[in-house]
Amino acid sequence: MRSESLWIQIVQQTQMRWQDLLQALYQHIQLVFFSMLIAIIIGIPLGILITRIKSIEGTVLGVAGILQTIPSLALLGFMIPIFGIGIKTAVAALFLYSLLPIIRNTFTGIKDVNKSTIEAARGMGMTDYQILSKIELPLSLGVIMAGIRTATVINVGTATLAAFIGAGGLGDFIFLGIARNIDALVLIGAFPAALLALCFDWLLGLLERVSTPRGLKA
């Protein structure tokens, strides 16, 4: 009885709010996309940098690790004094949150490239840049993509909290549902968010396989 009425509620709420829902989904994807974009642009070079400059390796990984441990809601709160309320704050917080998997995977990916391959390349007269672009990055691309995938999936989940600071997204529905005690609303926010995470996971998994060099595949 209860579940049937829930189902009817969901249908009703969706019919009533499908335009808002699409808008929220769009906002959600935007949050994830921009925060991930910045995280990739900053995270990969940082990951490369710490393979070259050993002295900052601990600091960078440490700071990124600490950022990861700050409760997501608190991190969003910390950002408000800097960026105010709205999408900018959410993107900034989500970006910081996504850094660690990307930096760490870039770092390990490059570190795990066979030392003898690099020694042979250097001995034959490849420059540092050629070694990075032709050997280290292609060979660690699969691992780097795995980091991006992990970060994205976490990011989709965390982005629902952005609604708390007025950045919109699917979180709006969840919080509205909780506030008004309408289960159906919670679900029509949560379900697409979960689906979105699964979609990204599948898509990036595909990209991860495609980006693994042919000579390495079993």
Partner: peptide
């Protein structure tokens, strides 16, 4: 340039796997 004019072979071979 020095290295490009000197061949280099190591025990671990070090071919580029990709």
């Amino acid at each position: 340039m020095l290295r490009r004019n000197i061949g280099y072979v190591i025990q671990q071979i070090g071919l580029l796997p990709h």
